[in-house]
Amino acid sequence: MLDRRTILAAMLGGTASLIHAEQPNPDGINERIETLVREAIAKGDLPGAVVCCAGTEQVYYQATFGNRWLTPTKVPMSAETIFDLASITKSVATATSVALLYQDKKIDPNAPVCQYMPEFNGNGKQKITIQQCLLHTSGLTPDNALADYLEGPDIAWQKICNLGLRSKPGEKFAYSDVGFIVLGQLIKRVSGVEVDRFAAKAIFEPLSMQDTMFNPPEALRSRIAPTENEGDEWICARVHDPRSFKMGGVAGHAGLFSSAGDLVKFGRDMLAASKGQSKIFDQATFDWMITPHPVPEQLPRGTRAMGWDHQSPYSRNRGESFSKRAFGHGGFTGTVLWIDPVKELVFVFLSSRLYPDGKGSVNTLAGQIATELGNEFGEVR
């Protein structure tokens, strides 16, 4: 293992490259963002990053910083790098899939989950609705024991069905991976296919998101950023989240991989949806998905949308210059996506903050960059 001093020296030897920008460098924004990222790299908060800010047709800013790999040899970060998105899976894959099932009238979001999965009905869970799972107000625990997943996805599901509640459904907010595992199972039960196949067919293929998938093939390994050390190996090209990994890499809460370019494609379709021009959404469905809802008790001033963050204590990576209608999500591995339909901006920040020593932190950095870019390019249209 490399010691931290050696790691930092390797990080600082990385590159900062402005890949593509269709606008000039107004007021030195390139230099300001580069300074922010290089300072964070110097502190060991991340080895490198891909940053992109795009509008409906233009890429306003896109740059890469630092390295994807540090050992055994340094590999500079590239715009084509594929990242483990972690909890952005909840929004881009799972919540979007649930919204499409709602659009097709296959589900009623106000109905109890057990209406579609009768086994999910013990210990008070019979009152949990689909919408409550999307808003993290289901009363389910954030995470049940990892031991519950060691025998595979079928046994894991049985154990989730046997769980009790932490609070009454609808009474409190508690960010819950379990709630989104339930939604992944719902997608499978209603559509007949796992969330990876449903999302690929209904979302990723129509939007030409060729880098976006669960369980990426070995052929893509050379483009994928490692996440963390595991024994003598680096976790790379397989999901970092331990529960998703034990479920075969396909789950409603984590497991999706993607690139900056693909997330821009997704974000642009969301911008189009706000005008009734989406390839996948009716405008009414889109509006339902992103409408903010106050979340009770633990976040008295917080609001969340259906599977998306809006304005809450989880929004440090949001920045301060987006409109009140912006929605987004972050991922544990160091990934951020925000979409602002008022300013017509898509903001993507992708890093692998846990590589190489598991100690990185990027939410404040991403929020600072988002603020800079939102101020510079986000004129209300």
Rank of each mutant, 00 (worst) to 15 (best):
L2V: 06
D3M: 05
L12P: 04
Q23Y: 01
Q23D: 07
N25G: 06
E39T: 02
A49D: 07
C52K: 04
A54P: 06
A54H: 00
A54E: 02
V59G: 06
P72C: 07
P72W: 01
T73C: 09
P76M: 03
M77F: 07
I82S: 07
F83L: 11
S87A: 09
S87R: 02
I88Q: 14
A99R: 10
K106R: 13
A111P: 09
N121S: 15
K125W: 08
K127I: 02
K127M: 09
T129K: 08
C133A: 09
D143A: 11
D143W: 13
A145E: 10
L146M: 07
D148F: 14
E151K: 12
D154V: 08
Q158I: 04
K159F: 03
G164S: 13
R166T: 12
K168L: 13
P169H: 12
V178R: 05
I181R: 11
G184I: 00
Q185L: 05
V190T: 11
V193P: 10
E194H: 14
E194M: 02
A200K: 15
A202N: 13
P217S: 15
P217H: 13
A219V: 08
R223E: 11
I224T: 12
T227V: 09
E228Q: 09
E228R: 06
G231W: 07
E233S: 14
E233M: 10
D241W: 05
D241P: 07
S244R: 05
K246V: 05
G248A: 09
G248W: 11
V250I: 15
D262H: 09
L263Q: 14
L271V: 03
L271E: 13
A272N: 14
Q277P: 08
I280P: 15
F281V: 04
D282V: 00
A284H: 15
T285F: 03
W288P: 15
T291H: 10
V295P: 11
E297S: 15
R304G: 02
W308C: 01
D309V: 02
D309M: 05
D309T: 02
P313L: 03
F322R: 12
H329K: 06
L337T: 04
L337R: 11
L337Q: 09
L337Y: 10
E344M: 03
N363M: 01
E372Y: 00
V380Y: 07
V380P: 03
